[in-house]
Write a protein that binds this DNA or RNA. Sequence first.
DNA 1: TTGTAGGCGTTATCAG
DNA 2: CTGATAACGCCTACAA
Lengths: 339, 339
Amino acid sequence: MKRSSATIRDVAREAGVSVATVSRVLNDSGPVAEETRERINLVAERLRYAPNGAARSLSLRRTKTLGVLLPDLYGEFFSEIIRGIDQSAQQRGFHLLVSSSHNNLSDLEAALQAMRGRVDGLIAMSPHVDARTLIVNLPESLPVVLLNCAIEGDAFDALNVDNYGGAYAMTQHLLSHGHTRIAMIKGAEPNYDASERLRGYRAALEAAGIELLSELELAGDFTEASGYRAALEALLLVPRATALFAANDSMAIGALSALVETGVRVPDDIAVVGFDNIPIARYMSPPLSSVHVSINELGGRATERLLYAIDQENRHERTREVAATRLVLRQSCGAHEGI
Amino acid sequence: MKRSSATIRDVAREAGVSVATVSRVLNDSGPVAEETRERINLVAERLRYAPNGAARSLSLRRTKTLGVLLPDLYGEFFSEIIRGIDQSAQQRGFHLLVSSSHNNLSDLEAALQAMRGRVDGLIAMSPHVDARTLIVNLPESLPVVLLNCAIEGDAFDALNVDNYGGAYAMTQHLLSHGHTRIAMIKGAEPNYDASERLRGYRAALEAAGIELLSELELAGDFTEASGYRAALEALLLVPRATALFAANDSMAIGALSALVETGVRVPDDIAVVGFDNIPIARYMSPPLSSVHVSINELGGRATERLLYAIDQENRHERTREVAATRLVLRQSCGAHEGI
DNA sequence: TTGTAGGCGTTATCAG
DNA sequence: CTGATAACGCCTACAA
């Protein structure tokens, strides 16, 4: 019973041929006599031979795997996005090397370093990541697609959600239904999505000639718990806000829960809306209105872009793409009844 | 401007030393004069040198990465479990090669093959996977931890949720509160979790001397949508069921939604309970009672086990571990009011 | 159609 | 302390 597994040499020896021939039949490159081919296949199967990935990558200079850099895997948003990435990648025979939860910069740099020679390209999604860090830590030959990052310059391909536009549109919608005291539950602070959504909210209010009140901008960190707390805070405002715009659905769901518990009716007493339109939003009670983002499509799109960049050996134009959002109006904002 | 990135040779040449010395300072193995060490570090930094992972793995015979095999990444359950795995892995400096969405067997086999030489160990979580497939497709030297798989034999380390016990306990709880007509929304069919949970439900009913009725076992597939549909079906039963036990929380949430929409009060008219206790369960209205599973802890635990196996070079006893569950009773089952 | 040999980038074992 | 040099497992000219 051998300790380590069969190599191409073992197969060659058993089949009485050279490694070159074995390699040829396994990748069917080059001509091989039908008879030897069969013999080799048989031996390979018997020995349960499978090529060693590391050796293969080293020799071929490509790994057939994509690196995915994430901030943290919490919640449905990320699970959806990875899902989108994985589906597209798998379709093209690529694997995923994921690395998440980078709180500090050195963690991130370490992860970046470790990707070297292990991936053919990289999808980076840390909202904290700035381009500089990436440029410094990556070989220029590695194709990169930035997903939802605060981008500066045009060194990378980038894919962003229209956070600003979505927030603007949703705020405008609330305004058009008579709300003037709209509170926003903000996202985690140094986050790009968070600040863009806040910017959209503010811009819409200003465009409507409504004064921005800092008391209406409530702290949050994208978790249900923070949405819950923020909603309780919102109830203390005088006069009370008539609408609550959470920077993501998780917080909106937390807020809904707080309101139900305190006997505040949604949407009659207060309207609630979220952002992302995660699958579960539709099943809340009342069903949650939200700014729809095609999350897994976003992941898929990023993968396509990356694979293209890899095919072109990075000799393509860098482009920036902004994924549109659209409002999905359900009962939580009272749109159905028309306030 | 060089096309490909710097190798250890480049660093050696620039610093006027041999590759061996460079390797020594980079991994600080072996003694090196302080002066040369500094020089090498400087050059390495200037050249932005980072060791090639593939070459490193090939030479060291270990990759510092763990393979993760998943059925599909849908929903909060999987996102939580990967999160748990990733956290533990990262702590020990390991990366994750994930591969999911294996519908057919050949996909799975391909993924397994591709892991060869790319990972130091494997966490497999497909509820469809049977041990045979794994054994046949993996080199015996690769440590494997089975997570929530239908296991047979003792060829692998295994970690399971106490699906049976949890379902039994929850059913018993409902029974003890006077429910006798308890409907179960089943999980996706060939799934191990699904069948174990069903088995627990049935056993509890039988133990209470209650007849099993097939009309009370409703089809589901773990998605919110299927829970929604099942709840509507349940309402058609005569006499109506007084409690609804969904095989996971997503379906329970779908069911809640359907009940609210049709004006059926929970828990007054019908109790609803789920399984998994995903983070969002607590924020439903009414808050969802569920069988708690420490999901991300489960992932973390699996990782620990795998890392241990790797450390022991697989020369350890295989063990099977069952993670306990506990009931988390919130308002959706009326436990607070005591039916 | 097949085999030989060199290289992919590192690490590690020897001598010096 | 440092430098050759042989692995690691695979692919691919180039020769035969």
